[in-house]
Simulated assay, not measured.
Amino acid sequence: MRSLALTLIACCCVANAAGGANDPLISPSTKSAVGGVAGALSSSASGSSSSAPARKLTEREKEAQAEADLSARIQERLAIMRANQAARVAAAAKARKAAESKAAVEAARPKVYSNEWSYEGENGPANWGKINPAWAKCGSGNRQSPIDIRDGMKVELEQIAFDYHPSSFNVTDNGKTVQVMVGGGNFITVGNRMYELIQFHFHRPSEERINGKGYEMVVHMVHKDGEGRIAMLALLLERGKSQPVIQTVWNNLPLEKYDTAAPSTVLDPMELLPGRRDYYTFMGSMTTPPCQEGVLWIVMKEPVQASPQQMALFSRLYPLNARPVQPGSGRIIKESN
């Protein structure tokens, strides 16, 4: 109340001073005194007003303010989280779209499988069926070759009719064996079906076994009929006298692997055959990838002789190029009586 009164008095003094500033009836000393009083009262009122303490917030107001601040911080944090989540979703969608696009391109691109195989190591016979889908029979077939020929059914088998004659030939070292391509016109007839000799090649040791017995080498003579069916004639080799056809082949070996020699001379496949023509027969497969089945096998019972020197020469080129024996899987084996 005192401050209010002083303020009112000051205001009156100021007003009077302002009003009497031009009044000639008021003396200068009076005007000065009034101005001083007014100034003092004004300063006193101003000082009293500025020194008044601010009003304190109640507990309820403090709680409300704290809740408002917390809510603001939560909303700010949620906004940041939503923005981050939206960025992650967008990035994931972009990555998924890129992956789908890449997968579509890969699916459209033709798959290329290896054609590399060998007789040892990772690409050896145990893995042939896994290297290329086209070779699946090498691992899953139930009529695979070679086999150990046991318990043959002795029957009256008709004699094989051989129609071989001296023919042109070429010799290729194909990196897996020595292969001899023979000129056309050489046939065998088995079961009223005629097969033409296409080529013959060598394996060391023999792939076939007879009652568990293996041989040092074997010659496989590949024949085909007009419908593409294969008949494989196997000639087991044992040490003995020199074999003339084999010597002719060795004389014309190419000087480099994967090369072919085409001599001007001829060879007679008939000279490869043993004196006796008894045989075993059964259904099997090719012994190299893709291991296709449905092959008619004819294994001559009497071995053919070749000299130790002839066998040693081949062993220098291919010391091991034979597929291991495969399961018989209950197949029927017929044997000449």
Rank of each mutant, 00 (worst) to 15 (best):
K334I: 03
L70H: 09
N174K: 10
K111T: 11
Q159M: 11
K102V: 13
A93N: 11
E61T: 05
H220Y: 01
P327W: 10
K224T: 15
V34T: 13
V182H: 02
G36R: 10
A66R: 03
G36E: 12
L197D: 04
L253S: 08
R276I: 02
H223S: 03
E238I: 10
A68V: 00
G36H: 09
G183A: 12
K56I: 07
S43Q: 13
A91Q: 15
M81Q: 05
R96C: 01
E59L: 08
E293I: 04
D69M: 11
Q75P: 00
W117G: 05
G191E: 05
L267A: 03
D225N: 12
S42L: 15
L317Q: 07
H165K: 15
P166Y: 04
A136G: 06
M311I: 12
Y215D: 04
P254W: 01
E67S: 08
C11V: 05
T177V: 01
R193G: 04
Q292I: 09
L320S: 08
G152A: 07
A312H: 02
R82P: 00
E120Q: 08
K56D: 12
M270Q: 11
L313G: 08
V325M: 06
E238V: 13
T248R: 13
M270H: 11
M217Y: 09
V219L: 13
R204G: 13
V266H: 10
N170C: 06
V89T: 11
E156G: 12
H165R: 15
L25I: 00
W117V: 02
A52F: 03
T172S: 12
D225Y: 07
I230V: 15
S329D: 14
A90N: 13
T281M: 09
E116S: 11
M283P: 04
P269N: 02
G39H: 11
Q292E: 12
V219D: 03
E216P: 00
S118K: 10
G36L: 11
F202K: 03
P146V: 13
P205C: 01
S71H: 02
G191I: 07
R323H: 06
W297P: 02
P289K: 05
F187K: 06
Y258C: 00
S140F: 01
E63A: 14
I198W: 04
S315D: 12
T281I: 04
W135M: 09
T260C: 06
G36I: 05
K213L: 10
G129S: 14
G175Y: 12
F314C: 02
E208Q: 12
G20F: 14
L320G: 07
N132L: 13
D151C: 08
L296D: 08
H220W: 08
V249P: 05
D268E: 00
A93F: 00
S206W: 08
L313P: 01
R82D: 13
A15P: 01
T7S: 05
